[in-house]
Amino acid sequence: MSAVVWATVVRPRGTRVDRAWAGRVEQSEVGDTVRRAAAGDKAAWDAIVESFSGLVWSIATSYRLGQADAAEVVQTTWLRLVENLDRLREPERLGGWLATTAGREALRLLRLRGREIVTDDEGRFDDAPSALPNPEETALGAERKRQMRRAFAKLPERCRRLLHLVIVVSPPYAEVAAALEMPIGSIGPTRARCLDRLRKLLDADGGSGSAVGC
């Protein structure tokens, strides 16, 4: 990779960015753009950052990190890309690489924070019920979560990644398509099939598949 150092600007969440990523880098051109950036083409690097910043930010903030920690995850993810730009085995799958790296960095930071959930939005707790759930309700809730985790773990990896992106992270479909290298039009039907499989796995485990949202 070129010795030129490129500074990635950390864009605070909520700052408006152009989500029409295909206007900067066509999906069919991602691999070539990565190779040009690795060769020292700053315009190619800028196009990558502009095209995938929304996806990286969406992944970072999906872990309920505070603003400063989410910004650190984003910055570290871009740093990892700079370090590996000329070593990516499949540069055309850059979206998936960035999504995976951002998720790993978020989990690493959570471990460093002692698994403490950090948030800048203290108001999110204002609507919490004043009365604590009784022990039976707590036990039932814990069991439902365990059943959901077991069922989710049995899904194919592609289903797990898709549901995590679409339901938990919830970026624009263009960014999901970029991360998973799939046509935008197939995201909805694939999501429905994955949810149906999850319902069946829950039913087989004695849980309630009807609890899985559509």
Rank of each mutant, 00 (worst) to 15 (best):
G31H: 06
L162A: 06
P172A: 14
G213V: 12
P156H: 05
R36A: 13
L140Y: 04
V34K: 02
M182F: 04
R87S: 08
R111P: 00
M182L: 14
A71C: 01
K200M: 09
G209L: 09
R113Y: 00
D41W: 04
V4Q: 15
C214F: 09
T76P: 01
N84E: 11
V169R: 04
P91V: 07
E136R: 15
E143R: 15
I48A: 02
P171C: 13
L110K: 15
R108Y: 11
T190Q: 13
M182P: 03
P156W: 04
R16E: 11
L132N: 08
P183R: 05
A179H: 09
S53Y: 02
S2F: 01
L109A: 13
A37T: 02
A60L: 02
F125D: 14
M1P: 12
G114Q: 12
M1L: 11
S210E: 15
T76Y: 01
E90S: 09
E105F: 05
T101S: 08
M1I: 08
P156T: 03
L162W: 06
P91E: 07
A128D: 10
A106C: 13
R191Y: 08
G207R: 10
T77Y: 02
K154L: 11
R16I: 08
L81R: 03
A47F: 00
V176T: 14
V25C: 05
R193W: 02
R161T: 12
W57G: 08
P171W: 07
G96V: 07
R197Q: 15
A3I: 03
A177G: 10
E50H: 02
A139T: 08
L79G: 07
P189I: 09
A7H: 11
K145Q: 10
I59N: 01
L98W: 04
L162H: 05
A43F: 00
L165M: 13
E181W: 06
K145M: 06
L107Q: 15
R199K: 15
Y63A: 08
R158N: 06
Q75I: 00
D32R: 13
A70P: 01
A139W: 03
V118D: 13
I167N: 13
A139V: 06
R24Q: 10
V5P: 01
T190N: 08
E116N: 10
R144C: 00
G207C: 10
E143F: 03
L109R: 15
P129F: 14
R191V: 09
D41A: 07
G141E: 10
V212C: 07
L201W: 05
V169P: 03
G96Y: 07
G188C: 05
H164F: 15
L88Q: 05
L109E: 13
A102V: 12
G188Q: 14
G54S: 06
S208P: 06
A20S: 09
W97I: 01
E50K: 03
E105W: 03
G54Q: 02
H164A: 11
T33C: 11
P189E: 08
D196Q: 14
R16P: 00
A128L: 14
P133A: 12
